[in-house]
């Protein structure tokens, strides 16, 4: 399913005249498909958490403060550059590769097992993600062309154009993007059990 989503996203990005980004998504689809096959065969290389698990305390607060200040400085600096320029591209690509490299290596810390997810509750999140994708696709389909935005049916990208035309807007969006990346990496610290690992609960779902 993940591979199909990435392939479709790459296709739509490509026909919207951005084949380079489409290629990135297709490469990710290939890697994800390959890794999923390795996992099914039990041939995946071992995973290594990036950080030791540590209790909340002064050390983690200091680390958090350093990360926040670094992210703020990064967003303020990068936001001063215009979109689709080489400096902006280099800055974003470096962070993206770093995030992917950390995720490839393993979870952020040795994950703590958690209760399995409720089937109905977790499907609400999946349904919301599907609804968002369909709404965006509807707006995209109502544009005059795939490369020309529509005022009547704006996609998120079209709506973001005005926000990203200013230094402050770019800095805020870069900061939000960094925060999202950190949120995702941080989410790997706690892994709810899968249905197969908790047969007694029954009413849970395997989203992976």
């Amino acid at each position: 399913m993940r591979v199909i989503v990435l392939v479709l996203a790459g296709f739509f990005d490509g026909i919207s005249d951005n084949w380079l980004h489409g290629l990135v998504l297709w490469t990710a689809a290939y890697v994800v498909g390959w890794e999923a096959a390795q996992e099914r065969l039990g041939a995946a290389p071992p995973e290594q958490p990036l950080l030791p698990r540590s209790a909340p305390g002064r050390r983690s607060r200091t680390t958090s403060a350093v990360l926040v200040v670094t992210a703020l400085l990064f967003a303020a600096t990068v936001g001063s550059w215009h979109r689709y320029t080489w400096p902006m591209t280099a800055a974003i690509v470096v962070v993206a590769i770093a995030g992917l490299a950390v995720g490839w290596r393993g979870p952020l810390t040795a994950p703590t097992p958690a209760p399995a997810l409720d089937r109905v509750g977790s499907r609400l999140w999946v349904g919301l993600a599907v609804a968002a994708g369909l709404w965006e696709l509807f707006a995209l389909s109502r544009q005059p062309s795939l490369t020309q935005g529509s005022y009547a049916h704006p996609t998120v990208s079209v709506l973001m154009d005005s926000v990203l035309s200013t230094h402050a807007g770019r800095s805020l969006v870069v900061l939000a993007w960094l925060a999202l990346g950190w949120f995702l990496l941080d989410a790997t610290k706690v892994i709810p059990r899968s249905r197969s690992a908790s047969p007694v609960t029954g009413g849970t779902d395997d989203l992976a």
Binding site: L6, E35, E39, A208
Partner: peptide, 19 residues
């Protein structure tokens, strides 16, 4: 966290974020 419990899941989600 559940979706990203495996390497393939993490790479898929982080690739979407990178994109």
């Amino acid at each position: 966290g559940r979706v990203m419990a495996t390497r393939s899941g993490r790479v898929a989600v982080l690739a979407a974020w990178a994109w």
